[in-house]
Design a protein around this nucleic acid. Sequence first.
DNA 1: GTATAAATATGACAAATATCATTAAATTTT
DNA 2: AAAATTTAATGATATTTGTCATATTTATAC
Lengths: 228, 228
Amino acid sequence: MSKCTQCIIKRFNSLHKLNHDELENFSEHKTSLIIKKGENLMTEGHTINGLYCIKDGKCKLTKLNTNGKEQIIKFVKGGDILGHRSILSDEPVGLNVTALEDMHVCFIPKGDILDMIRQNSQFSLSLMKNISHQLNEANTSISQMAQKPVKDRLAETLLHLENIFGTDKEGYIDVILTREEIANTIGTATESAIRLLSNLKKDQVIDLSGKKIKITNKNALNNISEGY
Amino acid sequence: MSKCTQCIIKRFNSLHKLNHDELENFSEHKTSLIIKKGENLMTEGHTINGLYCIKDGKCKLTKLNTNGKEQIIKFVKGGDILGHRSILSDEPVGLNVTALEDMHVCFIPKGDILDMIRQNSQFSLSLMKNISHQLNEANTSISQMAQKPVKDRLAETLLHLENIFGTDKEGYIDVILTREEIANTIGTATESAIRLLSNLKKDQVIDLSGKKIKITNKNALNNISEGY
DNA sequence: GTATAAATATGACAAATATCATTAAATTTT
DNA sequence: AAAATTTAATGATATTTGTCATATTTATAC
């Protein structure tokens, strides 16, 4: 099995605060796994006893509402860690994590993480910083969901997706989502999302090619996201 | 000035993880202040260099949207701490904190907090637990804002307010909010909030007396909040 | 490669929610 | 206590968004 000490993905997350020996220790206890597209890495309400470090791949974090609708809360890609919120708060997992493409993931047991928090305050602070930042993002999201109309939220979401996943050689946002998933991100009906995407295309703000989306007028999209 | 060692409010937050000497140290550097009703303890975008421990009083945490509307993200009362998210993530404050009634608050400088995180891992873990829990709540909120209709969100909010603030001797929820503030909590127009409150009263689910609200049929309200 | 299913697109209509206007009630100021 | 201001309430109407129906395109299975 590959070693944490040699893994370059850790530089994107709190694990970069660990020294060589600490990483060796993690390496000894870690397991690595592959999550196929469409499979769940975690499931809402379940307990997990460790932290996942995403080596490669993209996933969506969702919540199932009482009405049966899926709400996408967040998108995560390689370099991020998952599951720390649950083990730190001693609560069950709050979100489903579903692979949008095949993922390579490493699992580090809860005990090792908690030990490391006690002995390495830099690691501890880095985790806090990560969660604190996420909390701020979530609060912003609440405000936007509550106050912005669907069109603005769609514009916002497209800009956000490009920020997270970047673009391919042709300039298309580098993630493949169904129209339903886009609708579940902005919190609207699938038909509404489709209609608004069509409108944005007609207005030459974006370009559509199958499921691929290219932002052709970022300025305009920015304005729309702010209600102009 | 009163001492942290003798303050009973700390048992509700992470400060209860500190021993006598550690509290003495905090006491020496802390300042205490009074925030009058309507005044801000923190302002969105500003930097703070410390943590606030709410000794007494109620406040709302809000965000000002690009369209100029205020969104209430959260209600906080005595016993809670504020500002730790900002100092832990090294980001400006994300929310306005406005007193709903006169508040007594203690301020502990950032340096002391960070030192304590490094030396007391129980304190550190307790802070993480607090923020992790808040993140989970925020994620739930996103989902509800995005997917639930206004009526359901109002029901949810009323139940939530009773949970946080409890009831007075006559059974009314123990916080005074304007209709506009209720609207800003659930993310709707003030008129819509007023109308829906009137309907709930007509349906004998709640009782209204001026700004005071009493839940008279919690079961029904629970059902409404889940879409039945 | 054809059949089958799933996803996308679009129109017609219904429901939810916002906006504007006006009145009534409560609160604050003088 | 009266006047002025703010807040609450309610009707009328406009706008936004959701739902249902159906066609078309795309993906998947055989």
